[in-house]
Amino acid sequence: MLDSPSVDLDLETTQREGFSIVSLRGEIDVYTAPLLRQTLVDAIEQGAVNVIVDMERVDFLDSTGLGVLVEGLKRVKTREGHFAIVATQDKILKIFDITGLNKAFPIHSSVDDALSEATAGS
């Protein structure tokens, strides 16, 4: 069911400077979040320790999507890696603010910022 064309979430994973960059487009909700979870789990199981989730083209994010991001953060942290979010849209930032998870994730305004911050801090 997850690879059905009706799923309104596109995911693309690219590699850059030792980071796996997961770029998302569409809506992350209770139906599509499992697809994001599987993508993150696969990337981390295949050895990714530094992950950037690019949410610039995400139209919607709910608590199930947040739960998946928290799980990804935990998995990466046990491998002493970096897990960062790229988001600038108010509607996406708001849910991080309400839940206090803006303190758990480094949130950047672009993939370039996320990369330079993460590599500077390591």
């Binding site: 209770v30 919607f60 608590s63 108010d90 509607k91 708001k94 849910i95």
Partner: peptide, 19 residues
């Protein structure tokens, strides 16, 4: 649009719980 986005998220969370 800001309020529409708030409503979308609130409705989704309530529906997630109900589902």
């Amino acid at each position: 649009e800001e309020v529409v986005e708030d409503i979308k998220l609130a409705v989704s969370e309530a529906c997630n719980t109900a589902v």
